[in-house]
Design a binder for these strands. Sequence first.
DNA 1: AACCTCAGTTGATCTGGGTCAAAGAAAAAT
DNA 2: ATTTTTCTTTGACCCAGATCAACTGAGGTT
Lengths: 247, 247
Amino acid sequence: MSVQTQNAAGNCSDCPIRHRAVCAHCEKPELNELESIKYYRNFEAGQSIIWSGDKMGFVGSVVSGIASLTQTMEDGRTQMVGLLLPSDFVGRPGREGSPYDVTATTDVVMCCFRKKPFEEMMARTPHIAHRLLEMTLDELDAAREWMLVLGRKTAREKIASLLSIIARRDASLSSGGPVGTLVFDLPLTREAMADYLGLTLETVSRQMSALKKDGVIQLEGKRHVTIPDMGRLMEEAGDDTDGGMLG
Amino acid sequence: MSVQTQNAAGNCSDCPIRHRAVCAHCEKPELNELESIKYYRNFEAGQSIIWSGDKMGFVGSVVSGIASLTQTMEDGRTQMVGLLLPSDFVGRPGREGSPYDVTATTDVVMCCFRKKPFEEMMARTPHIAHRLLEMTLDELDAAREWMLVLGRKTAREKIASLLSIIARRDASLSSGGPVGTLVFDLPLTREAMADYLGLTLETVSRQMSALKKDGVIQLEGKRHVTIPDMGRLMEEAGDDTDGGMLG
DNA sequence: AACCTCAGTTGATCTGGGTCAAAGAAAAAT
DNA sequence: ATTTTTCTTTGACCCAGATCAACTGAGGTT
């Protein structure tokens, strides 16, 4: 259960501090202190990890599976405000509770640390505080990019944007097809996609069908997606076409 | 020009590190080092402070006026992703450039620090890094709250949400009217409001007229707004009505 | 005083995506 | 194997907000 896993981007995902390529966790001796307060939690698909307003006793990171952050209005309208993939951090050091619901979208394994000792460590270890700032800035960039998607893009562009994001983080390069072909399994229901995109599930379904008909994506079953041309998908998403998808 | 100003929330706005009630800047001797690398810049309404993609040589905070962060697609669609009011921080320590345009919406005075020495200070002063993490988490919360607005609220709710945010940060309690009455000048054109809300300027104008007709707001001229009942406005915004607006 | 320009309003019409409804398809339960 | 449930697709219709267009009104400028 304490196997160090590597995701597609080369990050160590068995650790609350997300890394690029190298796992500082394993290099910095002072971080081994984290090991002693580390524990794992499993959540089933659909299960709530944290309720909005609850006190959070822990911070941690996703080891496997997908979790989502959602906000809900009293009348039931919901908006997903974040998608947590393996290696993503969960928690708000220095904050009492969560303003969002955190829900397991698939079965999820989380690597957790009790909040108190983690924060004490953070205060003593500038490296962790610095890394956390980095990660929070990344999340802020992602949230702001998503504001453009929600505010100004059409339904088709929204779907293409979401597929593009998931593909970049989740997909493995297919060995068989031409270069640039990506294959992955959608970890979200149509309804979850709709909640992320500010659409209805019917519109999501229609636009998926349209993208399939137009050859932008291929679908086997409902969830298995092949993207024959990543550049084409990004055009559909309305993004700058800078060609390189692994920059 | 180095007068310490206090805004309505009691924050020191003459400083890149935003405070609550007390200005640590003035309390912590080590932060006086910041004084020696501090300088001011003025921007006229409409002027660009930073172009998206540019290298940013400085970090700083807004002293007076309003600036906005915007993202623009190739075809001209634009989405405002942040509103910078006095005391708000601008800059991305540890990052090269800005992924957004930063524009002066009104005349703006900024208090700046060259980035290099600021970052060196930050590395030496855990207090600053910690404060910066706090601020970034606040911005992330604001961005995510805005995702709900953009993704799920109606045009009327969007307008009410924006007015509510500006009122809370910008307004002074009117002494004459009943308790809870707020008065302020809108610092945004109808077009800027539209860019923030993911609407067209015509829809903004129509909904402003509708809110006026329904007595939710009063308008003198185009910009001077009176909110007779803050609770009512928050209901219109679809927010939880928790009563207290200065919690 | 006539002429701009720029911000805002209002009306008429159009349409993308929402809503309501029905049916298929795959997984889970009996 | 059949029923139930959960997810998805597709069709028909509608409406909130976009689009297109005309007009108002407050400053400035000469």
